[in-house]
């Protein structure tokens, strides 16, 4: 199967899942101020699951998962301030590094391992993803799409490294060292033999790009990709 066909299949499955859940009203009313990509991740998580958020920042996604999904929420975060914020929220978060600490977790320790807007900042994205698929029965990955038309415009027309709302850093001080496009990510999933249960592209406003659009449209107009994966 080609990458395009893969995406198409996953998108159809994802859209179907999203539709059924929305109609069943399984996600309680979204708390005000919750990020759209966070809400999308919440929808992917079955209630009562064990969840590990890698690079969980101040713990807002974990807290949301706990509140809306009753998830047993754990996290790893690099920054001390982030960990302190999480502990103050009553979350079991440890200070650590996605690149070095995942290997210490046993197989199948979690139902979902989440990497939200962190993939591009890891030193070894492939290894990180492999560990996620090993530790969790599912992996959820969201990342900024380097194939978005504004990025292409900045690079292709203006000849500058792009600085956008989603990627606010200048090239010299960015923590993001491994950008990829939605197509690149799909390619990696195929290499790892991961199954894509859901794939979404979110536009600049965080709204899902309409699912029936062709794949090149996603890679051009999706500001970020959100994927639900599992081992092959």
């Amino acid at each position: 199967m080609t990458a395009a066909a893969d995406i198409q299949a996953a998108r159809v499955a994802g859209a179907r899942l999203a539709r059924t859940e929305a109609s069943a009203g399984q996600l309680p009313t979204a708390p005000p101020g919750a990020r759209r990509d966070h809400l999308l991740v919440c929808r992917m998580v079955q209630p009562g699951s064990r969840v590990l958020d890698v690079g969980c920042g101040d713990g807002s996604l974990l807290a949301l998962l706990r509140e809306t999904r009753g998830a047993d929420s754990r996290g790893i975060e690099l920054s001390r301030d982030g960990v302190s914020d999480c502990l103050a929220k009553g979350l079991a978060v440890i200070q650590g590094d996605a690149d070095t600490d995942l290997e210490n977790y046993p197989d199948d320790a979690f139902d979902y391992v989440i990497l939200s807007q962190t993939l591009q900042a890891t030193r070894q994205p492939r290894t990180v993803l492999e560990h996620m698929l090993r530790i969790g029965r599912h992996a959820i990955v969201s990342f900024p799409n380097f194939g978005h038309w504004r990025v292409r415009f900045e690079l292709g027309v203006r000849g500058r490294m792009p600085v956008t709302e989603n990627m606010p850093h200048s090239w010299y001080d960015t923590p993001n060292i491994h950008f990829c496009t939605i197509r690149d990510f799909v390619g990696l999933c195929r290499e790892l033999g991961a199954t894509m249960d859901e794939a979404h592209a979110l536009d600049a406003g965080g709204q899902p790009v309409r699912w029936h659009m062709p794949w090149w449209f996603w890679n051009l107009f999706g500001e970020q990709g959100v994927f639900l994966l599992r081992r092959g």
């Binding site: 960990v83 979350l91 440890i94 200070q95 210490n104 320790a109």
Partner: peptide
């Protein structure tokens, strides 16, 4: 912390 995680424990950790 690694041992607690491996044992399935619920653990928070911060280096101050």
């Amino acid at each position: 912390v690694h041992a607690l995680n491996a044992g399935g424990g619920q653990v928070g950790f911060v280096e101050i």
